[in-house]
Structures are given as C-alpha cells and as structure tokens.
Design a protein around this nucleic acid. Structure first.
Length: 286
DNA sequence: AAAAAATTCAACCGCTTATTT
DNA sequence: AAAATAAGCGGTTGAATTTTT
C-alpha cells in the first residue's frame, strides 16, 4: 500500500514523491477551510512538508472533486484528437474543452496513444486482428452457404474452403453452373465486408482507412499501412502551434486495439448518458 | 513460471506569465 | 516601476504495473 521507499524522501526540507493518504487528507482539509490557492501557506498552516508547487499540482491533478475519474471515452478521445490537430500541444487549452480532465491527463493520453513510433505498431496490430476476425466471419459465411448449395449441387467437396477468397475464386473458375452461386457468394461477401467497413469507419476512421478498399484516400494512410516498421515520422510533422491541421498525419491516430476488440465483441460501453456535457458545453471554440 | 520488455501516469523540473508588494 | 512571489504550462522521468516472450 505504502511505497515510500527510496523515493519518498525529504530534500531541501520538502517531501517529494508520491502522496500518502494522510497528506491528501491534510491538503483536502486545507482547501476546504481556505479555498484553492495560496499554496505556499499550506505547509505553514497544516504542517504538511510539501512545497506549494507540489500541493497545487496534487490538488489540481488529483484531489479536485470535479475531476472525472476513469478511462477516456471514445468521444473524449476524438475531441482530444481534433483539438490537438487544431492547436498542437496546448494541453491546458484542450483540457478546457474536456470537463473533468486535466491537462496532464490529456497530455499523457495523447503521448501514450498517438505519439509517433508507438501508434503505428498498435495500428498494425489492431489491423491484423481486425482482418483476421473479418476473414473468420467471411469463411464462416462461406461455409454456411456452401452447405446450402450442397443440397442442390451434390458435387462439391470441402477442398479449400477454409480459406475465403481463394475458395471463391476457385469455384468461379470451375463451371458455369457453379459460377452463378459463386457470384452470389461473392456479392454477399462483398456486402458483408462493406458493412463491416462502414461500421468500422463510423467509429474509427483511421483504421478503416487503412483496412477497407478506400485505403489510400487519406493522407498518411498509405504510410501507416505500408511500413510496418518504425516511425511514420515524415508525414506527421512536428505539431507546432502554427497551421496545426496541416501537418497532422493520420498515420499516428487512434488506439485501435481496444476499438477493434470492442467492435468485434459487439459494441463498447460508452454510456453516452454519463457525458452529456461534452456536446454542448464541451466544444467551445473561442 | 519467470524474466524481460513495454506501458502507464503521477509527479517532477525549468521556464513563462500573472499577481502582489 | 520594479522586484518578489505565486500560479500556470509543457516536457520529461521513473517506479509500479501490465504484457509479452
């Protein structure tokens, strides 16, 4: 519970490192009595061995009662992405549009999820997983329909049907009689695939753009999908304050691991009712 | 099963901006 | 008016935790 070893020491009179529950209590009590601010007097009045700076930080980023705990929702994530595209690393500015979230939190979130280097890896993994899932669904459908067909045309051995597209192609080549049914299959598959792509695109444009037939329409998509390896550095520029959106590569967006899993599992639990503020007051452009 | 690698995030630092004296 | 103090910001760090091998 209490990890105050090696790194919970005093230095120059001030305690540093992780806060203990007791310290938190003191600080909370102080704020209750004196309000926010005047952080340097916390130590004087409460005996807490923390610098004003440390106290402020603790309050602002952790103890403030209006903080929203828990994971960043997909909606919040997209706000972060949009605003970051717009404003660059102005975390506190971005945070003003996300009630209950701190600049630190947003900064951490963005860095861990979207900073170059890492995301491409995530995206690759997510995409691989998604494609696999889709392939499974397809071959499942294929099997199912082939089963039906066998009632009509007896002549169809199971040969290579655990592999989707291949099977379709082969069938098509075999005989005119079969070809009609095969075309039907293909059409179904295409529609299924389209449905899934649409679904995916609705929730997460980035991976969709890398996965579906529309691949390549968006700038950076090609980079993301092509080079499984290191940094898609080039396309994403460096996010200065300037023109903002201009140098923002799609290649470094979206944490799709979760997204994909959740979509496949049948919808994530993004409980919109918990975040009613977001739409209305959240996105205030100045 | 255990060791290594990766990820997360609370808290730090130095710098800038705002407020007070 | 200017010096001093406080608040605020963004980048960075590293212990704890989680994931991968």
């Amino acid at each position: 519970m209490e990890g105050q070893f090696g790194w919970g020491r005093e230095e120059g009179g001030w305690r540093k490192g992780p806060w203990t529950a007791q310290e938190d209590k003191l600080l909370v009590e102080y704020v209750r009595q004196h309000g926010e601010g005047r952080w340097n007097s916390v130590a004087k009045l409460t005996g807490l061995k923390r610098s004003g700076k440390s106290c402020r930080l603790r309050w602002v980023n952790y103890l403030r009662p209006d903080l929203k705990r828990g994971k960043i929702t997909p909606q919040e994530e997209s706000v972060i992405l949009e605003l970051h595209a717009l404003w660059g690393n102005r975390w506190s500015t971005i945070a003003r549009s996300l009630p209950g979230r701190t600049d630190n939190e947003i900064k951490n979130y963005w860095r861990t999820h979207f900073k170059k280097g890492k995301p491409s890896k995530n995206i690759e993994r997510a995409r691989a997983r998604f494609l696999k899932q889709r392939r499974e669904m397809q071959s499942q459908l294929l099997l199912q329909q082939q089963g039906q067909d066998q009632q009509h045309h007896q002549q169809q051995r199971q040969a290579g049907n655990d592999h989707d597209d291949e099977a379709v192609v082969r069938e098509e080549a075999s005989s005119p009689a079969v070809s009609l049914a095969a075309q039907q299959h293909e059409e179904d598959l295409r529609m299924l695939q389209q449905d899934m792509d649409d679904l995916l695109f609705q929730f997460c444009p980035m991976i969709a753009s890398c996965t579906s037939s529309s691949c390549g329409l968006l700038p950076g998509a090609a980079t993301a999908s092509a080079s499984a390896t290191a940094s898609d550095e080039g396309s994403s520029g460096d996010h200065q304050l300037d023109g903002a959106a201009a140098t923002w590569g799609w290649g470094s967006l979206w944490n799709l691991d979760d997204v994909v899993d959740d979509i496949v599992d049948g919808g994530w639990d993004w409980d919109t009712s918990s975040y009613p503020l977001l739409q209305d007051q959240g996105l205030a452009f100045y």
